[in-house]
Amino acid sequence: MNTKHSKPSAQAVVKDIRRATRKQYGAEEKIRIVLEGLRGEDSIAELCRREGIAQGVYYKWSKDFMEAGKRRLA
C-alpha cells in the first residue's frame, strides 16, 4: 500500500477549518472589548462569553493595552 497520498485525519481537517475560520479582531475591536471590561459593568467571564473569546485572550489584550499606555506616557 502506498501511504504517500494518505488522507489527513478528521481531527486535522477540523483543526484546519477552525484555524481558517477563526475571527480576527482588529485593534479597534480589541480596545473596545478591553475598555468595556475596565468599565466593570459586566463580569469578565460574561464579557468574554458574549464576545466569543477566551478569558486568557482578554487578559493578554488588557496587558498589551496597559503596556502600550505606559510606554506612551514615559
Rank of each mutant, 00 (worst) to 15 (best):
M1D: 01
M1V: 00
N2S: 01
T3I: 04
T3R: 03
K4D: 09
K4Q: 07
H5C: 06
S6E: 08
S9K: 12
S9V: 12
A10G: 15
A10S: 15
Q11N: 12
A12D: 09
A12S: 13
V14C: 13
V14R: 14
K15T: 15
D16L: 15
R18F: 08
A20R: 09
T21Q: 04
T21H: 05
R22V: 07
R22T: 09
Q24I: 05
Q24Y: 04
Y25K: 00
Y25C: 00
Y25N: 00
A27Y: 14
E28G: 04
E28P: 00
E29V: 03
I31V: 11
I31T: 08
R32C: 10
R32N: 12
R32G: 07
I33S: 00
I33C: 02
L35Q: 06
L35S: 04
E36P: 01
G37T: 00
L38F: 05
E41V: 14
E41G: 07
E41W: 13
D42N: 10
I44L: 11
A45H: 09
E46S: 10
L47T: 01
L47H: 02
C48N: 03
C48I: 04
R49G: 05
R49S: 09
R49H: 09
R50E: 12
R50P: 06
E51Q: 06
E51C: 01
E51G: 00
E51R: 04
E51A: 01
E51M: 03
G52V: 00
I53R: 02
A54Y: 12
G56F: 10
Y58V: 01
K60W: 09
K60N: 08
K60V: 08
S62N: 13
S62H: 13
K63L: 10
K63Y: 09
D64Y: 13
M66G: 10
E67M: 13
G69L: 08
K70L: 12
K70P: 04
R71I: 05
R71A: 07
R72C: 02
R72A: 06
A74C: 11
A74H: 13
A74G: 12
